[in-house]
Design a protein around this nucleic acid. Structure first.
Length: 571
DNA sequence: GCCGTTTTCGGCCCGACTGTTTTCAGTCG
């Protein structure tokens, strides 16, 4: 069994133990063990062979046994027995807001409900309201939670969530008495998807701020409203939380609610080592009741107090960011001089060469790469060899006309056929400035076949870049099965760039791979995959992912001058 | 179940809010 599957089993064990009413710390141990395994950089097989698995923080002797058993045999009797003892419907019940492990267990023990449908029937029959610890409101809340389960459980693309959040943030900042306002949570950490919106406000008068927020026209339901916190739900099912704190606590609250949970745990441990307990309220000295007055008014002050540089929010994932000694140089949107993977109306885009170049100029770009589909992408009106050569001519003519300050690079998004060969003649590919190779068919190949297919394409001398290496569509389609480590190795060996496809629903290759890959020499290109002029703006989403992957400007082709890009392309 | 410069037991991050209670447990982040 591979690492990802083992992580899944450990996570599931944690959930099952919760439903069993197990010791919460034991539950956490499985969850954090899963996390440690998921984020470790070493090869699992090597670590096991060397007997080093137990040296990982968060993995003790019990987990070593279980992970090794799963790795060797793919089975674990402990897990099988545990799973068999719990009805799958109980796990589903955890998705209902307000129900956690203990309540689900009580419902199951008292009413013998083993499915969401049975729970719904029990609520409708009024059997839940009569239970110890439950009442009429709980019953109604469970029913509404079941009704809206799908919408509530849904995550949302960062791009869409941000579009919803920006006007609310601006509205909060305009309110009188609001000294500061920021978004927090996964939105601020630039995660590819977000579960809800978090707003943090500094004000001495919380009430009018709460009232404004819960009174927003798009609010469908107010799920909580208190002294410092309100929660609302929008029509789309998206939830938003607002916290209003006194100005002197703003930095602590902002840091706390930005997270991630793992980052906060690490920060608290660091604070404890310095003799302080860290919370969203402040730093409290050991044995004292109130937070100490330390003159901390910004996150930068807080980090400095703990001997750290100001760690950018997008790096706060508990992945070693507390080990840095200075703020890393991260890619900035202002350093982007152009983008490479975009379509025109020659294939399935909507705009002409001229219109795309004008949009690139409006963004301040020096150059623009056009890469229409090749002929196998029939659904996208892909170009055959003759049409590609004609397109090259059109682009050359455009450049020579001098009508634009933007230099257009003539490229292609060439299909990688199921056997790893390419969709165009070598002579055609040679006529182009560069080529992005992408998989658009036979997604369900076994991992070995897909990996060999993509590596064969990477090894072709015409290949400049690999497009969306896993083919995932966030929240819609799983990545295809591929061994990315081998693909990355091949890309580095062949001096092939891997793109960050910046379309908000792709963001592929995933940020989790970039830090290590780039350290090993992989070069990145940020490719908006624009199909119309407005799509060029997606490059911002790509920059976000590059930052989240710790990429410095020098590791990203888009920061180079047109001349340097030409040299990279070999022309 | 994990961990240890307080080291093999006894902690483990912690506070707001809700709904149920009549002082608190459970959920959530």
């Amino acid at each position: 069994m591979d690492k990802a599957d083992i992580v899944g089993v450990l996570e599931e064990i944690a959930v099952l133990l919760e439903l069993k009413g197990e010791n919460p710390f034991k539950i956490r141990a499985y969850a954090s063990g899963a996390r440690a395994l998921e984020t470790m950089e070493a090869d699992l097989a090597v670590l096991i062979a060397e007997g080093q698995l137990g040296s990982m923080k968060g993995i003790g002797s019990a987990l070593v046994d279980k992970i090794e058993t799963l790795h060797a045999s793919g089975e674990l009797p402990f897990y099988d027995k545990l799973k068999a003892s719990i009805a799958p419907g109980l796990i589903e019940m955890l998705e209902i807001p307000g129900l956690g492990g203990k309540k689900v267990k009580r419902l199951h023990d008292a009413l013998e409900v083993e499915s969401v449908a049975a729970l719904k029937a029990a609520c409708e029959a009024g059997r839940v309201a009569g239970l110890q610890g439950f009442g009429a409101k709980s019953e109604a809340k469970i029913l509404s939670g079941i009704e809206n389960r799908a919408a509530y459980a849904k995550r949302h693309l960062w791009w869409m969530a941000n579009e919803r959040a920006v006007p609310i943030l601006e509205g909060l900042r305009r309110l009188s008495g609001v000294e500061r306002a920021e978004v927090a949570g996964s939105l601020r950490r630039l995660m590819e998807t977000v579960g809800d919106l978090d707003f943090i406000v500094a004000s001495k008068e919380p009430e009018p701020v709460m009232d404004w927020f819960t009174g927003l026209p798009e609010v469908r339901e107010v799920t909580a409203k208190g002294q410092t916190k309100s929660s609302v739900r929008f029509e789309s099912g998206l939830q938003a939380d607002l916290r209003v704190v006194p100005p002197e606590q703003f930095a602590f609250a902002l840091h706390h609610f930005t997270g991630s949970k793992e980052h906060n745990v690490a920060m608290r441990q660091r604070a404890l080592a310095a003799g302080y307990s860290l919370s969203e309220w402040g730093l409290t000295k050991k044995d004292e009741a109130e937070p100490a007055a330390l003159g901390i008014s910004t996150e930068k002050d807080l980090f400095a107090f703990l001997g750290l540089p100001e760690i950018p929010p997008e790096l706060r994932e508990g992945l070693g960011e507390l080990e840095i000694t200075e703020v890393p140089s991260l890619l900035d949107a202002g350093a982007i001089r152009g983008v490479f993977h975009n379509h025109t109306n020659a294939s399935d885009g909507r705009a002409t060469i001229e219109e795309m170049a004008a949009a690139a100029a409006a963004l301040g770009f020096e150059y623009l790469g056009l890469a229409d589909h090749s002929k196998s992408s029939v659904q996208a009106n892909g170009l055959n060899d003759a049409r590609v050569l004609k397109m090259v001519e059109s682009i050359r003519a455009f450049n020579e006309s001098g009508q634009s300050s933007v230099h257009v690079f003539a490229g292609i998004e060439c299909d990688i056929l199921p056997d790893g060969s390419l969709d165009l003649e070598d002579a055609t590919l040679a006529a182009l400035d560069y080529a992005v190779m992408s998989v658009h068919s036979a997604f369900s190949q076994p991992e070995g076949e897909m990996t060999a297919r993509v590596i064969r394409a990477i090894e072709h001398p015409a290949t400049t870049m690999l497009g969306h290496p896993t083919g995932r569509l966030l929240l819609r389609r799983e990545p295809y099965r591929i061994d990315l480590e081998k693909v990355i190795d091949a890309a580095i060996a062949n001096k092939v760039i891997i793109e960050i496809n910046a379309n908000p629903q792709r963001l592929d290759m995933d940020w989790r791979h970039w830090r290590r890959a780039a350290e090993r020499g992989l070069v990145c290109a940020i490719n908006p995959d624009a199909h119309q002029t407005s799509g060029l703006g997606y490059f911002h989403a790509g920059v976000n992912i590059a930052r989240k992957g710790w990429l410095a400007p020098a590791q990203v082709l888009n920061t180079r001058s047109a001349k340097a890009v030409k040299e990279w392309f070999g022309g």
